[in-house]
Design a protein around this nucleic acid. Sequence first.
DNA 1: TTTAGCACTTAAAACTTATGAGTGCTAATC
DNA 2: GATTAGCACTCATAAGTTTTAAGTGCTAAA
Lengths: 341, 341
Amino acid sequence: MLNDRKKKILQTIVEDYIENSQPVGSKKLVECYDLGVSPATIRNEMAELEEMGYLDKPHTSAGRVPSTLGYRVYVDSLMQTNDLKEEEVLFIKKTLENEIIEVNEIVKNIGKAVSDITDYTVFSTGPDVTDAVIEDVKLILLGSNMLLIVVLTKEGSVKETVINLSKTVTEEVIQKLNEIIRIKLKDEYVKNIKIDVLKYISNELSVYVDILFSILNEIMKLINENDITLDGRNNIFKHPEFKKYDLAKSFLDVLEAKQLIKEVLQVEDKDVNIYIGDENEHSEFKDFSLITFKCPENLGIVGIIGPTRMDYAKVLSVIKYINQILKNKYKKGGYVNGEKE
Amino acid sequence: MLNDRKKKILQTIVEDYIENSQPVGSKKLVECYDLGVSPATIRNEMAELEEMGYLDKPHTSAGRVPSTLGYRVYVDSLMQTNDLKEEEVLFIKKTLENEIIEVNEIVKNIGKAVSDITDYTVFSTGPDVTDAVIEDVKLILLGSNMLLIVVLTKEGSVKETVINLSKTVTEEVIQKLNEIIRIKLKDEYVKNIKIDVLKYISNELSVYVDILFSILNEIMKLINENDITLDGRNNIFKHPEFKKYDLAKSFLDVLEAKQLIKEVLQVEDKDVNIYIGDENEHSEFKDFSLITFKCPENLGIVGIIGPTRMDYAKVLSVIKYINQILKNKYKKGGYVNGEKE
DNA sequence: TTTAGCACTTAAAACTTATGAGTGCTAATC
DNA sequence: GATTAGCACTCATAAGTTTTAAGTGCTAAA
């Protein structure tokens, strides 16, 4: 479909534009890159590439800019990932070596590393809870009417919350409730825990049925919640397109829409997905590009968001490297309760 | 020092500028406000006010703008707080009525209410830990080598963290450690807990001295940490001065500097402090105004940050009202373990 | 097929000229 | 003496104009 020269030209334009954020003209292309033909030839090719939909022209006398389709082709078949710089490798290693207590922290470290190295904004969320299996539930009475609920999963996630109890209960009652809940929920897949299971549990114990129900309710909330961590929020200011007030504002507004971000991260597609500009399903993202990365061993999902003129190759190189580290480190089925299995 | 007319003119200029963010001229002043004199007279007065340092002139043909000193005088002696609108009163009441489980949530609710009503950015932090008295410490073994540490204070704050244990320990050992720690720390003022106390505790138990020490260490960290909550981060976009890219950027950068914000909130001055522009000690704040509000009954501290052209009267009215509600609600010495004492 | 040459396009930058809001001063008025 | 009408002056902003330069597309020659 595209001859080699067109491919080369398209690739060069995309890469130059990503680097300099300036429309690329035929003359510059010939001068800076070794293409072996004259500007006129390039112009002819560029005109064809534009007609085919791979390039856009901001206006007649500007150079060319990649279209969404142009980026798409670049990302799918022209781009190549590179080895990271030594300091980047070291930085990632160091960040991922931070002592990890709880499985959700792994993805937090990843998010931090990626945002620092790429200069983009990164959001991340821990292991998918619906795949999780409950390991243990602990109820701890604090004072006379606060209850700390801790849910542990086999994957090593620890989730806690504190609730108010509607009436005062004794340590013994709590222990009994805890025992019941533990027996019923231990080794259960989170996705299988439905309201009727909870009803069944609460039926067994009629005196404290209201307390039990509110505890179970809270447990449901806990295990189904997945917090979003945001890194490098202000990194947008490092990219010239965001000097436009409105774009910066809409970007920052998107970051605040946690629910939206949750949805966007829950893609059931490949492990690494790239959504360029208006390829994004949600219109709020149409001026940005999004790369999602599902970490191996269900460690979590990371989303990198930046301008459509994003350094896709760089981001993917980083992801690739991190993916490899994670695979080695957490090879055999995940990270459980603070140690490798 | 300032005659009544000058006061009236200064007040009117400040208020008009706060409302419209446009330099105020003599003609407009006479037209819109009932001053009873001609523009020429106003001009003479304004020239004097400028000479005295209360007004600034962006340029010859612009109107006047309050200087820091002008705002200062306004805030100190000209401004009057107003009753809130009914819907604002209702909104605050509703927000503060949210079920509160833990004492730190009160100030979070306050922060949210203030940022929603004032359209400024608000940060908040819970009760001052150094005044706190430890109520209880709970150690809960999760799996074989994760330990959940919970510290309760008499004030009703609950702080938790999970640590990795360097070696596997049994439930019994943890119980024993917990007992020792509880006895030593219960009813102790946080500010009195020093390293030597901890050393003394750990000396009593020599076998697990390293584990105990890391637990104590973590408890120290926990009780001395005070998280900052941020509300209405993107509210800055509601104020025209932040259409200037650089100002918006520096504002958002300040918000990320959590350590700086912590310092700024720890003022040991009055309960309500107003820092206008370059009155701020930290140069990062010199383009903004900051109002700090120390909630009654040591519930926490709230900081409201906005442009120097901030609606001080509005913010103070809101603070005043909230202060009154809090005083009534938590009258007798605070909020303990989920209920009023 | 490639390219030199050139007329054409156009955004952005650099000037230029209004416009108008606001001032400060002077001299007349209350 | 305080106030104000009148008016020349200032200056940022907006609007309009010209220049510049980067880039294009087309034609005809290589």
